[in-house]
Amino acid sequence: MVPVSYYVALAAILFTMGAIGVLIRRNSIVIFMSIELMLNAANLAFVAFAQAYDAINGQIFVFFVITVAAAEVAVGLALIVAIFRTRQSINVDEINELRG
């Protein structure tokens, strides 16, 4: 039985890496993937605590987070495609105005 604190530490490491990825990368698709990594780290913490507290609510919440992530990815990637069509670039430094 692995202590919950190990899982939480791993989740913290993965979340931090996702945050660093958002800050250092310029490719908006990779930034998006870093956000997914952060969501997953949060999910891992949820499931770890669900097991620690013997409560299934944490798992249900992860279910909802995954659904929201799926919706978010669909809309986000559609936005990236639309931006690429008008700007011919997905570098976040070049996308600095809302008007196309």
């Binding site: 791993l10 997914e36 798992q59 279910f63 992530a69 799926a70 990815v73 669909a74």
Partner: peptide, 26 residues
């Protein structure tokens, strides 16, 4: 890890929805 933590349902969802659907979209 989800399997380790006694959540096989979420493990399957993770593989099908995340590793499958979402990453294929990416």
């Amino acid at each position: 890890f989800y399997l380790f933590l006694g959540a096989p349902f979420l493990a399957m969802i993770q593989v099908t929805v995340y590793a499958g659907a979402i990453m294929v979209l990416f």
